[in-house]
Amino acid sequence: MEKSIEALSRGALASRSGVNSETIRYYENIGLMPDPSRSSGGHRLYKQEHVKRLSFIRRTRELGFTLKEIGGLLTLVDGGDYTCAEVRDRTLSHLNDVTRKIRDLQKMQRTLKSISSKCDGGLVPECPIVDALYVP
């Protein structure tokens, strides 16, 4: 039998998940996190499902998924009628975006190395870096 977790406050959920309390509130407002139950005094009561979901969101954010992409993945999972192939397709699409961004960053890196290598760091106002940045 699985041991149930006690109800957590938002602060305790933040501590347990490593996600800022205000970020949790934001995720609730945009629908990524389900509304928690409430105590008789109106305090939010988070459970293990919230910890698990928040961990999923945090990890996907660390991997660069957008909030829209995360919402799409969670919609698949929440519906319960998804296939691993659907999740893989969304992940591969994200991987393609990451690969494109890496290529763009490498191009930027080469350009910055090139223009900075033309500057000797002198004290004169003429600067080959500024000149290079003005070229269309």
Results as ranks from 00 to 15, higher is better:
residue 26 Y to D: 02
residue 23 T to P: 00
residue 25 R to D: 11
residue 18 G to L: 04
residue 37 S to P: 08
residue 71 G to I: 08
residue 56 F to N: 00
residue 20 N to G: 10
residue 10 R to I: 15
residue 41 G to K: 14
residue 72 G to M: 08
residue 82 Y to I: 08
residue 65 F to H: 01
residue 18 G to W: 04
residue 76 L to T: 10
residue 17 S to L: 02
residue 46 Y to Q: 01
residue 85 A to M: 12
residue 42 G to F: 13
residue 19 V to N: 03
residue 16 R to T: 14
residue 15 S to P: 00
residue 33 M to F: 07
residue 92 L to I: 07
residue 76 L to I: 08
residue 53 R to L: 14
residue 57 I to E: 01
residue 22 E to R: 07
residue 79 G to H: 05
residue 51 V to C: 12
residue 15 S to G: 14
residue 13 L to R: 00
residue 23 T to L: 10
residue 20 N to K: 11
residue 18 G to M: 09
residue 29 N to S: 15
residue 19 V to E: 02
residue 40 S to D: 15
residue 77 V to A: 12
residue 62 E to D: 13
residue 23 T to I: 11
residue 39 S to F: 11
residue 90 R to E: 07
residue 23 T to R: 02
residue 22 E to T: 08
residue 89 D to T: 10
residue 86 E to G: 07
residue 47 K to S: 11
residue 50 H to M: 11
residue 17 S to F: 00
residue 64 G to P: 03
residue 32 L to M: 08
residue 40 S to R: 12
residue 19 V to Q: 02
residue 40 S to P: 01
residue 24 I to A: 05
residue 56 F to R: 00
residue 45 L to S: 05
residue 32 L to S: 05
residue 73 L to D: 00
residue 88 R to G: 00
residue 60 T to F: 12
residue 64 G to Y: 04
residue 20 N to I: 04
residue 23 T to V: 13
residue 85 A to H: 13
residue 67 L to V: 06
residue 36 P to I: 11
residue 43 H to W: 05
residue 54 L to Q: 06
residue 21 S to K: 12
residue 14 A to C: 10
residue 81 D to N: 04
residue 65 F to L: 06
residue 68 K to D: 15
residue 57 I to F: 00
residue 12 A to E: 15
residue 55 S to P: 00
residue 74 L to M: 12
residue 95 L to W: 10
residue 41 G to L: 07
residue 72 G to D: 13
residue 73 L to I: 15
residue 30 I to N: 06
residue 79 G to I: 09
residue 79 G to F: 02
residue 71 G to R: 07
residue 19 V to D: 01
residue 53 R to A: 09
residue 67 L to R: 01
residue 47 K to T: 13
residue 76 L to Y: 11
residue 21 S to I: 04
residue 20 N to E: 12
residue 40 S to W: 10
residue 40 S to V: 10
residue 33 M to N: 02
residue 58 R to I: 06
residue 17 S to W: 01
residue 86 E to D: 14
residue 86 E to P: 01
residue 96 N to A: 14
residue 34 P to V: 03
residue 19 V to L: 08
residue 72 G to I: 06
residue 19 V to I: 15
residue 91 T to F: 03
residue 93 S to V: 08
residue 71 G to D: 14
residue 26 Y to N: 07
residue 96 N to K: 09
residue 75 T to V: 06
residue 87 V to Q: 04
residue 31 G to C: 07
residue 38 R to V: 13
residue 87 V to C: 10
residue 40 S to M: 11
residue 82 Y to S: 08
residue 75 T to Q: 13
residue 25 R to K: 14
residue 64 G to M: 04
residue 51 V to G: 03
residue 56 F to E: 00
residue 38 R to P: 06
residue 12 A to N: 09
residue 21 S to A: 15
residue 80 G to P: 01
residue 38 R to D: 13
residue 78 D to M: 05
residue 21 S to D: 12
residue 88 R to N: 06
residue 14 A to W: 00
residue 14 A to F: 01
residue 27 Y to S: 11
residue 72 G to V: 02
residue 49 E to G: 04
residue 11 G to W: 08
residue 10 R to D: 04
residue 39 S to E: 09
residue 83 T to K: 12
residue 33 M to Y: 09
residue 19 V to F: 00
residue 29 N to R: 13
residue 70 I to G: 00
residue 23 T to Q: 05
residue 51 V to T: 05
residue 16 R to D: 02
residue 93 S to Y: 07
residue 77 V to S: 11
residue 13 L to T: 06
residue 85 A to C: 09
residue 90 R to L: 15
residue 47 K to W: 04
residue 30 I to R: 05
residue 95 L to C: 12
residue 80 G to A: 11
residue 58 R to N: 05
residue 35 D to M: 12
residue 30 I to E: 09
residue 15 S to Q: 14
